[in-house]
Amino acid sequence: MINLKVNGKDYNVDADPSTPILWVLRDEIGLTGTKFGCGMAQCGACTVHLNGDAIRSCITPVARAEGQEIKTIEALSEDAIGKRLQKAWIEEDVPQCGYCQSGQLMAAAVLLKAKPNPTDNDIDLGMSGNICRCGTYQRVRKAIHRAAAMK
């Protein structure tokens, strides 16, 4: 059994230690907001927070999260930064197909926490690992600026 804290709740899951966190979240715990994109840490769709870092859950073994705190898109709006991002995302109407968006938001939250007023360059540095096949990049950028300005 592996003990995990996900979105503030404790879970004991019966999984092989090498199982990617993504599958424990989706299949064992039932949190399906986190998406499977490429399965090799290339696209960012599976981004969740592990102790505040934007890890890629599709390749991170669940053993790494033993006793640690995971936060997923389902709990993002529980803090101030997450709330502002959610609002800004709706106001800018960012998603198109939406598949990459939970990863985009989880990455944006880490960026805003480290850099409350990011420049375009900061956004490039922090967000270039999250790929969007609909090409919503310009709206992602706008929404991050909007969320930063909301304080």
Partner: peptide, 12 residues
């Protein structure tokens, strides 16, 4: 930096 730390993808 930010959401692009090495260890976000590179494991032990």
């Amino acid at each position: 930096v930010y959401a692009m730390k090495c260890s976000n993808c590179h494991q032990k």
